[in-house]
Design a protein around this nucleic acid. Structure first.
Lengths: 347, 347
DNA sequence: AAATGTCTTGTAAACGTTTACCCGTCTGGT
DNA sequence: ACCAGACGGGTAAACGTTTACAAGACATTT
């Protein structure tokens, strides 16, 4: 049931069969019909591997994410996958945790499979990985936080804007003691968010004392634990900004357990805007980072790189902006204590 | 940078290079070293496509799910993916909705890519699809609800057990007016769950009047809407069994909105036991269907089929059992009205 | 010492396509 | 009637591997 068999059956050459299967317009309709009939009769299924071998293009993209299990990512996979089928591509997926070794392995194996490009949409230690991999000819797109790495398409996420909005929103509600639950700090993106938070606080004339910066792990459990610690403080925060929505869900959950009313006794802001965020109680005010936009950006970049490889050499850069979406998990603060300004406070 | 170049560089034949790359033990260590050095020097990356072409095995499995966006599935993808890398396989993923056409397309394209097997882990109209596809030589595993389809590995899910436990649990809490929110009824699996519910009710001497059987769509929004309808009934249910957890989350959400206390005024039971179920408020009592077990079952079946294709011909069958996990979303009913038994009530 | 066997390496075919190139036929212009 | 050109179709090489088979080197047996 290969092309040769069809050729024999239709009494033409393999070249002709190939041509009609690829709808080259110059072939005699009579022959074409014979070929098509033969193919249908035998249930012919083209072998993409062979095709890829000679053409050098596999029509496959690799997508590596850190935790498919974190609700942030499925939406990305969905969008990326839909774009893939729409454009006649297949999607090879790997979920590698934030483990650099596993990412490297995944990407390497994708390259061995001769994918036409790979997108690393991950919140891990991406930069060195990207730098390492750029050597290969495979188009690569990744989200980066450090310096732009040459030879790959860098997607940069502007955490700053959304976080600044969140902080301003909280300040407008008269919050001053604002806590921040970070992601795992070994991840550069987690550091970046933390930095963005600190800078936004400073900008607005607020101070974030170290005991209000607690490290989480991007999971619901982490949020639960973090609130547990925050609540033991002599002076509790009146608002908490979480570095992802899962953490916020954990905080809200634990607040309920501890009989702390959200938003009246405690304001909570998330980050990511996963679909579920609007359905928890209270609906979560959160910083939106559009998953579908991110996926689309990555896919387009890959597609573009494949069409004209020349372009790929110079790394181009695109940025995804974040912004605050207001829901019901924040409220005006009730009689919070003003805190003394730290010595290094800048007007 | 293909095998021939390495061969030239190491002054051996391509056959030898291939042998050392596949660690055939009989080759002279001296030569092996030369080859390995040459490969390292040139940064040789094997071409899996070519390898697959001659060996006929691509070391790739396809996984098709219905909605990667439904939290039930990411866990499946995770487990399946981990098993894949652990066994040296790659995973091609497709998320096709419950659209038969898209599923067919996805599977067809996977077959064109010469995957070694495909798992259809989906809650859609699977049976006809599986039957159609069985013609190809590709090992296929799918979850089925109708008659067992020959030539493929059927994973059958025993909805009955878990649902019966749920109904019994509710009955023990003195609930009699128990509503059931189904999935989209065009899906056979949704029908199966509904049937399991009705039978369990009957078994235990309870009646499920039609107005308490409302059709949902497996989403949070669907749960919200369904509770909206249920609440407008003259006689409200005291308990609701949902055919998936997302629906239950919607119900709980809307109950909060309507100031209905869960579990005291309304007991809610979910289905699936997604990870999040334990973190909503109140923690959700739900029927567990182990995602990782399902994924493992599917993967093992595929692997087994690949090892000895003879086995594949006769379709083997395996079943996944469900069972109730108790948390906090159910409680004793407070003064509910007994309802008259229907005429067709048996014993 | 010749014959046999074992062990390692090389040669070349094969996997299923695409495609550059060539060849034959037909059209139309002179 | 002859030739140029256009056009449709066939031949075969190529893609990068694996592997059956052959061949050569060397050890062992008679």
């Amino acid at each position: 049931m290969d092309i040769r068999e069809i050729a024999k059956l239709a009494r033409v050459s393999t070249a002709t069969v190939s041509r009609v299967l690829n709808s080259v317009p110059t072939v005699n309709p009579k022959l074409a019909k014979r070929v098509l009939d033969a193919a249908a009769l035998r249930g012919y299924v083209p072998n993409t591997q062979a095709r890829a071998l000679v053409s050098g293009k596999s029509r496959t993209f690799g997508l590596v994410v850190s935790e498919i299990t974190n609700p942030f990512f499925p939406q990305i996979v969905e969008t990326f996958g839909n774009l893939a089928v729409a454009n006649g591509y297949e999607m090879l997926l790997a979920s590698t945790g934030n483990d650099l070794k596993r990412m490297e392995l995944a990407v390497r194996r994708m390259i061995e499979r001769r994918v036409d490009g790979v997108a690393i949409l991950t919140f891990g230690m991406e930069d060195s990985l990207l730098a390492d991999l750029r050597v290969r000819k495979v188009p690569l797109v990744g989200v980066v936080v450090g310096p732009t790495v040459p030879g790959v398409t860098n997607i940069r996420i502007d955490y700053r804007h959304g976080i600044r909005q969140a902080v301003q929103h909280l300040a407008a509600l008269r919050h001053q003691r604002i806590a921040f639950i970070t992601g795992p700090l070994r991840l550069m993106s987690a550091m970046a968010r933390k930095t963005a938070f600190e800078e936004s606080m400073r900008e607005i004339g607020l101070y974030a004392p170290p005991e209000l910066l607690v490290e989480g792990d991007h999971t619901v459990e982490g949020g639960v634990a973090a609130l547990g610690r925050l609540v033991r403080l002599a002076e509790r925060p009146t608002a908490i900004l979480c570095s992802n929505d899962m953490t916020a869900i954990g905080v809200i959950r634990e607040a309920y357990e501890l009989q702390i009313n959200v938003p009246n006794q405690l304001s909570v802001v998330g980050f990511d805007d996963i679909h579920l965020a609007q359905f928890i109680t209270p609906p979560l005010t959160t910083v939106q980072m559009s998953q579908s936009e991110l996926a689309t950006l990555a896919f387009q970049a890959l597609l573009a790189a494949r069409e004209r490889p020349a372009q790929t050499r110079q790394s181009n850069e695109c940025v995804l902006v974040t912004s605050l979406v207001l829901r019901k998990s924040t409220a005006l603060v009730l009689g919070a204590q003003p805190i003394p300004r730290p010595p290094d406070f800048i007007s």
